[in-house]
C-alpha cells in the first residue's frame, strides 16, 4: 500500500509535447512510472518517447484507461486542463503549473468536487511512492521505499528533508507536495486521513509554512484523529507581515498565518516542531521509539 499512487497508476501527461512535459515524461518513465498516454491538442497520433499522444483527454482515457493525469500546461490554460481531465473521468489530477490565478482555482475546485475528482496542486512538485510511481518533477534518486509519509507546501525544502530521511535510513511510503498556492486541491487534513488508513505508513512528517491556517487545522485534526506519530517543521519564522514569500500562499496578513501561531497549535497537539530541518529524523526516531515501546 501507499497513498494516491502506486504501481497500478496509469498516467496521462497533459501538455506532453511542451518542453517541460516532454522532459519530465521521459524522467517519470525512466523511474518506472506507468505512463500510458499524453495529450496535446492538434498533435494526436504523434508518439513522444514511445508514449501515444491524443488530441483530448477523453480520447486518451477511452483508448488507454488512464486514471491519473499530470498537467504541465502554462498557467493561463491550467484551469481548463484540470477541468478537461475531471470531465473525462480522471480520478487524480496533479497540476504542476505555477502562477494560476486564484479565481480560476476557486471555479475549478468547486466543479471538480462535484465531479468527484481529486486534485494535487497547482504550483506543486507532484508526488511519489518510491519504487512504484513518480508523478511530478521530484528528483527520484533521493527517495527510498519505506514507512514515513511526508507532505509539504514546498519543493526543494521537501527534497532537503527527504534526503536527510533517506540518509538516516528512513524510507518513505508516499511523499506529496501539495503546493504553495492559497486555493489548492488536497490539503494536509485529507492526506493525514489517508496516511492514518495506510498500513504501510508508520509516521508522518508535515512541512508547513507561513500563511493561512491549514497547519492549525491539521494540528486540531491530529489531536482528534491520528494514532500515528506526526513531526513538523514550519518555514518562514522570520518573514515580515504583508510580504509574499515566493509562494502565492506564503503571506502573513494582519497578524494571522504566523509561524508562531502554527508552532503553538502543533505544541498543543503534541506534535514536535523541528527548529531546523536536520532535527526531523531524530524527532521521528524518538516518536517511533515511544510508539514501539
Amino acid at each position: 500500500m501507499s497513498i494516491l499512487v502506486n504501481k497500478d497508476t496509469k498516467l496521462l501527461v497533459q501538455g506532453i509535447t511542451g518542453r517541460d512535459g516532454q522532459f519530465h515524461a521521459g524522467r517519470m518513465k525512466a523511474y518506472g512510472t506507468n505512463i500510458v498516454a499524453g495529450t496535446s491538442p492538434g498533435k494526436g497520433g504523434q508518439v513522444v518517447d514511445g508514449i501515444p499522444v491524443f488530441d483530448t483527454v477523453a480520447e486518451a482515457v477511452q483508448a488507454t484507461g488512464a486514471n491519473t493525469s499530470i498537467i504541465f500546461v502554462p498557467a493561463p490554460f491550467a484551469a481548463d486542463a484540470i477541468l478537461e481531465a475531471s470531465y473525462a473521468g480522471i480520478e487524480l489530477v496533479v497540476a504542476i503549473s505555477e502562477g494560476v490565478p486564484i479565481q480560476d482555482m476557486i471555479r475549478v475546485t468547486s466543479v471538480i468536487e462535484r465531479n468527484g475528482t481529486k486534485l494535487i496542486g497547482p504550483n506543486c512538485p507532484g508526488l511519489i511512492t518510491p519504487d512504484e510511481a513518480l508523478i511530478g518533477i521530484l528528483p527520484g534518486m533521493i527517495f527510498k521505499k519505506g514507512n514515513i509519509g511526508l507532505m509539504s507546501r514546498s519543493g526543494t525544502l521537501t527534497y532537503e528533508v527527504v534526503n536527510m530521511l533517506t540518509k538516516s535510513d528512513m524510507g518513505q511510503s508516499t511523499v506529496v507536495g501539495i503546493g504553495g498556492d492559497p486555493v489548492a486541491g488536497l490539503y494536509y487534513i485529507d492526506l493525514l486521513e489517508m496516511y492514518e488508513n495506510d498500513p504501510e505508513t508508520e509516521a508522518v512528517v508535515l512541512i508547513g509554512e507561513i500563511g493561512g491556517d491549514a497547519e492549525e487545522q491539521a494540528a486540531e485534526y491530529i489531536a482528534k484523529h491520528m494514532t500515528k506519530p506526526v513531526v513538523s517543521f514550519i518555514a518562514g519564522q522570520t518573514a515580515p507581515p504583508g510580504k509574499r514569500m515566493g509562494h502565492a500562499g506564503a503571506i502573513i496578513s494582519s497578524g494571522s498565518g504566523t509561524a508562531e501561531e502554527k508552532i503553538k497549535a502543533f505544541a498543543k497537539a503534541n506534535v514536535p516542531v523541528a527548529k531546523e530541518p536536520s532535527e526531523i529524523p531524530g524527532l521521528l526516531k524518538e516518536k517511533l521509539a515511544k510508539v514501539n515501546a
Partner: peptide, 27 residues
C-alpha cells in the same frame, strides 16, 4: 540566494536561529 521558496524561508530562519539577520528572501 536559494533555489525554492520554502527552502529560502528556511534559510532565513536558520540565519536568525544562529544569531544573524537575513537581508532578504531570494528564490
Amino acid at each position: 540566494m536559494v533555489n525554492g521558496a520554502g527552502l529560502a524561508m528556511a534559510t532565513m530562519d536558520m540565519i536568525k536561529l544562529y544569531g544573524g539577520e537575513p537581508a532578504n528572501f531570494l528564490d
